[in-house]
């Protein structure tokens, strides 16, 4: 008999309160996301205490909406998975405690999920994995290259040594006076500008690690110096030049790793995967290779709970369980 696993997923690691129900780790039944972006805009970034307050207000509303949309009863749910980390600890705690309450009240197995495993498994909601595969995760909090040789086993081969790519985007956006979140604005401006400024690329030879703080400083210096000399730089050109540097490093390293490990798939995940400049360039460069490239649609790139349920399904099927003492872990390692 074909197994049929219905997984409830909960994600509250940053500023989205999200609940989803996923069948067999591959099919979305429902995927509800309540974004707080509007509340954080006026602060120019996510304020952890305010994020936590919103989560506790939203959690049962989002749960209810998910069940209503899915037309699923509790009897049909096989297990509950929740992001245990990394992320904002106060925000994570709301999801973790809600998930434990549900697991106890409804007597269901509980599975803690790593947020990045979730981002990777967002892709499996669109296409089945083929191993070995390489995942590039780029978001506000992450820039990582992860090698997977089988389901549920993650090998971190590269990570950022300072800022995440998304963080650099946000900081440069602030320098250019763009509203929060800055990433999409830079992306939009970049599409209209020319790469006129030669910003540095941090190659960190012999490593798949990344570094974006030097680039960020170079952009800031460039803007300052221009101001002092009374010159005006076109924001569009700064955006285009900055983005070109980020994209080139991300793609070169991903390509190099993909070839070295002879992978059958490259998947891109995380909020920055929604960046059009990055997507376009990735598609161009990978079309020159034999390696299939997967980028999920934008709704699955940004934080959501379907990805947590998808990753949780694999962990569940592999027999992994969390206890009632599951805790939020802001700096959880991917294993």
């Amino acid at each position: 008999m074909k197994k049929n696993t219905l997984m409830l997923g909960i994600e509250t690691s940053c500023d989205e309160t999200a609940v989803a129900i996923v069948r067999n780790g591959t099919e979305i039944i429902t995927n509800v996301v309540a974004s707080q972006i509007e509340s954080h805009k006026r602060f120019g970034g996510v304020v952890p205490e305010i994020a936590s307050r919103h989560h506790v207000e939203q959690i049962t509303l989002v749960l209810e909406e998910a069940f209503k949309e899915a037309q699923v009863t509790w009897d049909e749910i096989d297990a509950i998975s929740v992001t245990e980390g990394p992320g904002l600890v106060g925000a994570l705690l709301v999801g973790v405690n809600a998930a434990k309450a549900l697991a106890f009240a409804k007597q269901k197995p509980l599975v803690g999920v790593h947020h990045i495993a979730g981002h990777i498994y967002a892709n499996r909601l669109e296409k089945e994995f083929e191993f070995p595969l390489l995942a590039l995760i780029v978001s506000g909090g992450h820039t990582e290259l992860v090698l997977m040789k089988e389901h549920g086993v993650y090998e971190l081969i590269g990570e950022t040594r300072d800022d995440a790519a998304g963080e650099a985007y946000d900081k440069v956006a602030r320098m250019l006076g763009l509203p929060y979140p800055g990433g999409p604005h830079i992306d939009r401006l970049a599409a209209m500008g020319e790469e006129t400024i030669d910003f540095p690329r941090a190659w960190l030879e012999d490593s798949y690690d990344f570094s974006f703080s030097g680039l960020k400083s170079a952009v800031i210096n460039k803007i300052h110096n221009a101001k002092q000399r009374g010159e005006t730089l076109k924001s569009e050109d700064i955006a285009a030049s900055f983005q070109a540097s980020v994209v080139e490093v991300l793609i070169e390293k991903t390509l190099r790793a993909a070839k070295e490990f002879n992978v059958k798939q490259v998947i891109v995940a995380g909020g920055v995967a929604a960046n059009r400049g990055l997507r376009k360039e990735l598609e161009v460069r990978f079309s020159e290779t034999e390696i299939p490239l997967l980028i999920p649609n934008i709704k699955l790139c940004t934080d959501n709970a379907a990805m947590i349920a998808a990753a949780g399904t694999i962990a569940f099927e592999q027999g992994r369980r969390s206890g009632m003492d599951l805790n939020a872990n802001a700096s959880l390692l991917l294993k």
Binding site: R53, T60, A98
Partner: peptide, 19 residues
């Protein structure tokens, strides 16, 4: 404690909702 309060409330309201 903000965090302590949220742990109790998240647990209580989610449990009550599901039951």
């Amino acid at each position: 404690s903000y965090t302590g309060v949220r742990i109790g409330i998240s647990t209580a309201k989610t449990m009550a909702w599901s039951l």
